[in-house]
Design a protein around this nucleic acid. Structure first.
Lengths: 191, 191
DNA sequence: AGCTTAATTGGACAGCGTACAGTGATGCGC
DNA sequence: GCGCATCACTGTACGCTGTCCAATTAAGCT
């Protein structure tokens, strides 16, 4: 991936916004968010740091874009399944995706909201499922918020539990997530 | 607060760890976490930045200490009340405190866990309430985790909602929190 | 072919957290 | 009360960060 052929000013490296995003995601996956720095990213792309700013307005926009990309990995619900089952699958998928990209969760929580297109799609899909479960719109948006908070918030706590001595009696995180999710669904949809 | 009298090396400024923490909390409250920098903090205390390192091992420890301080603001539950009501009050207090210190929430979520003494106290209190509601220990720790995730996670989403046009029909955040909390308590304690 | 546009470099700036060595007041043992 | 070790603080500096500006040149359009 690294192309460190020296270039004089004016020479092009053939960068793309997508290439930058892909490289950033690679760094994120292998080295963590601490190492995702403009300079390291540029070095990996064989480019001076400033070059990135031709394809990205800044670091936060970069992170926003990656975040929305990742949100696209969430499994979209079927249009005809049982709403309760689909909601369960959808929120579990959200939770799983969040856990696969732990470094992004704090950034997501800091930005508070699903601003990108994939995020909006996700929000719409959730609300549609709640509507199909015949919740009135205001109840639906309330429930959607509760579910989103729960799914993402849980992911924030899930990684690297301190895990003192081996197996401190607590059930694995994902099972705890499923338990709480059932409670919430019961409250939202009635049992 | 600012004492910018020049000092030559060797002269003392009479700093205390508590003074540093207090000043940090003040900066946090008035200017936000972006402005909470070692240098700005030192300036406010009329001191060179390095001086802080005599009372604090680094910035992250500083934040940890503040975080645990803040956790001390949570209202501790009564020892004899109805467990369900006490749990409701306790988690609402956690949520309120988290909302009052929004900048700390991401740091809390990044650290994942209640490491300081106040945090441990909080955890113990919650688990005790759950035990008094006659949950077996493993169920109790699972439920505690679910509740903590919910209360803190919700706070992460609560501040400055994008709030497009005035009043977009969604109920206020705190009410949504209460609604979801009832759902969870119903699931945990049975209804 | 000429001209505009956009990608890239070189260099720089301000800011960050923090380490190291020196200095001198403070507090403790006698 | 004296001597000495400790510790809080300054001065300086290092390496790192995100980002801006001007100069350079390739690519694309007419």
């Amino acid at each position: 991936m690294r192309v460190d052929s020296r270039r004089s000013p004016g020479q092009r490296a053939g960068l793309t916004r997508d290439a930058v995003l892909a490289a950033a995601r690679a760094v994120l996956a292998t080295d963590g968010i601490q190492c995702l720095t403009m300079r390291k990213l540029a070095e990996r792309l064989g480019v001076r740091p400033n070059a990135l700013y031709s394809h990205v307005t800044g670091k936060t926009e970069l992170l926003d874009a990656i975040l929305d990309d990742v949100l696209g990995e969430v499994a979209t619900p079927a249009h005809d399944g049982d709403p309760r089952a689909e909601l369960r699958r959808l929120m579990t998928s959200v939770h799983d995706v969040a856990r696969e990209h732990p470094d992004l969760v704090p950034h997501y929580l800091a930005k508070r909201g699903l601003r990108g297109p994939n995020g909006r799609k996700l929000r719409a899909a959730t609300e549609q499922l709640l509507a199909r479960a015949s919740l009135p719109p205001d109840k639906a948006s309330e429930a959607r918020r509760v579910l989103a908070v729960y799914a993402i918030g849980f992911a924030a706590f899930s990684e690297t539990p301190p895990s003192g001595p081996v197996g401190d009696g607590a059930p694995p995180m994902r099972d705890s997530f499923a338990t709480g999710l059932e409670w919430l669904l019961a409250g939202i949809l009635g049992e």
